[in-house]
Design a protein around this nucleic acid. Structure first.
Lengths: 341, 341
DNA sequence: ATGAAAGCGCTAACAG
DNA sequence: CTGTTAGCGCTTTCAT
């Protein structure tokens, strides 16, 4: 366990002052008119002995940590996992590290998480939050910390945000089912009062209203273990045998729904058409392939990190709020095509 | 943006010394014989004004950050995402935060990541690394930092580790195919020189050797974009029409393999039997359901974090190396059952 | 039981 | 161009 080398050691060895070393290391050599030859000598020695400044001390002093806090619903959800991977890659490329945590839609846990991130002095936040933490986020915005909401907004909170236009996505998906001639189109969604979910429900409702068809919405209590979730879904389909098409508002409901339909032996799309929000390998490779409303993951990640870094690197612009709404894409596959009799 | 309250402010307000406040806050009141009534008063006021000690300053002073660094191959891979979610939950419950990064099997990137984690003074590491960073890890072990390798070992590195016995898992899966009467059993695996992969390959080879059947191993260059990966897999199956069963050594190869077989119109299991390593929704719900070697995710997470926390909380035991090997489970589904003609 | 004070390692203002 | 020095906010020893 070799002794840690300090800035002091390197200054002493080179017989220069600590300030000189620090300035050179922080790229202020030019500005402070330190001779190139000296600067070079410092850099070379630092490299040689592998000196690494203590980031904690540096952060304590400068107030910057170069860490971004990412708060998501659940890292095991493929949607969040993929976006997180993309954000991580992009952040890393720009010199930032990520500290991640999952909320599991628990607002108490989320409050703790936000507090932790503040305590750790993250430089900025990318947040997909459950409702119930509006006060905390408003305080965060007021504090001037750069922050961007993603996937979902928070009621009454004015902040940077990057979300997907689920209303339009769901509207188009529902319209597609209507055009295919389905009449009893159900929506299965989680019982969550979050902006992205209400948006999706609105798109569904509007399309059916325009078509003059009845709505059939089933909200599934949340959070739930996989077992009860499946039971609930099975019960829904058994209670509504006339339902000839179903939209799942999230990827996990879609997965669960496919399992339920298989157990019930309902043939897709002959007996029931299926569309799910979010794309993934299962939907693409299922038999039949499942029609989905695909979210633009790459753009979501790029815009979230881009917006955050912009306000991080331009503190002057704090106050300017950027809100982006990205368009999802309806990917029609066999599961929603009405079989010609 | 209200001014941050400091320990100094609270000491002044209560007309006690800074030391008293600090001691009370760190639970050393008893030890230092601070009166209960005073301690109570301090705690009450701290609570009242919502004072939060600056963790950076605290860490600089104590050398502890209460952050664990988790390095995995790819957070977008469901295996790692699930394990990460479980580890995060367990770590949080014990008061630790997680800093995650993905290596994408790039050893240069991994080296940078390890350096970053050191610079950020994480208290301990949980690592699933590519080969090529043995020297760095050995140095880390030597430095006395608690660390546990998971999923895969590193050649020549003696360290705590929690891995899955892929050799036995693959041996049993292969034996199962042999018992079902398949004769030309292929193994598709990534071209990666990592312990978990060589283990899986060994299990396959041994089972076939014992059965007196020929081996057919195809290594897929890695890393690769999804497109070329699929092309490569398609080419393999076209080149080996006689192959009547295939084992995929990873979940993503399994997914890609199913897509390839579908494109080629090969019926499973009539024309070719399929088994994949790792379980997931796709394999469970595919038609036909896919036989898998399921890894014990929960146990992997629990043992990894448990081992790490044990050595974190028991610095005395540094030097005692814990190596656990967990048993995977063969889950037989329709994809590997030989149809009776 | 308590207060003063010495750092943890670094940055940056200031005075040469 | 360089050296000195005052903190960043907290913990902990030591003397009281």
């Amino acid at each position: 366990m070799k002794k840690k080398i300090l800035i002091h050691d390197i200054a002493k060895h080179l017989e220069v002052s600590i300030a000189t070393v620090s300035l050179v290391l922080n790229g202020k050599a030019k500005e402070k008119r330190i001779s190139d030859v000296l600067a070079e000598r410092v850099l070379k020695y630092v490299e040689e002995v592998g000196y690494k400044p203590n980031q904690l001390a540096k952060s304590l002093r400068t107030g910057k940590t170069h860490v971004i806090g990412l708060v998501i619903e659940d890292i095991a959800n493929p949607f969040f996992a993929t976006v997180a991977a993309l954000i991580e890659k992009k952040a890393l490329a720009r010199g930032y590290r990520m500290l991640f945590c999952s909320t599991n839609n628990d607002s108490d846990k989320t409050r703790d998480l936000l507090t932790m991130f503040q305590e750790r002095h993250v430089d900025g936040y990318i947040l997909a939050l459950p409702n119930g933490v509006e006060a905390e986020v408003r305080a965060l915005v007021r504090s001037g910390k750069p922050l961007v909401l993603f996937d979902r907004l928070l009621p009454g909170v004015q902040a940077n945000a990057v979300v997907v236009d689920g209303a339009t996505g769901m509207y188009e998906a529902t319209q597609h089912l209507v055009q295919q001639g389905f009449k009893r189109i159900a929506l299965l969604m989680p019982q969550l009062d979050q902006s992205q979910m209400t948006g999706r429900a609105q798109g569904y409702a509007q399309a059916l209203r325009e078509a003059g068809l009845p709505q059939l919405v089933h909200k599934i209590a949340f959070p739930q273990e996989p077992g009860p979730l499946l039971q609930d879904t099975l019960a829904f389909f058994e209670a509504h045998p006339a339902c000839d098409a179903v939209l799942f508002a999230t990827n996990y409901l879609g997965v669960c729904g496919l399992e339920a339909l298989r157990r019930l032996g309902r043939r897709i799309p002959e007996e029931i058409a299926v569309v799910s929000f979010d794309d993934n390998d299962l939907f693409r490779l299922y038999s039949p392939p499942i029609t989905v409303v695909a979210q633009p993951l790459e753009a979501l990640a790029e815009d979230a990190i881009g917006t955050l870094l912009a306000s991080l690197e331009n503190p002057a612009e704090t106050g300017r709020i950027v809100q982006l709404q990205l368009a999802p894409q309806l990917v029609v596959r066999a599961s929603s095509i009405r079989p010609r009799p």
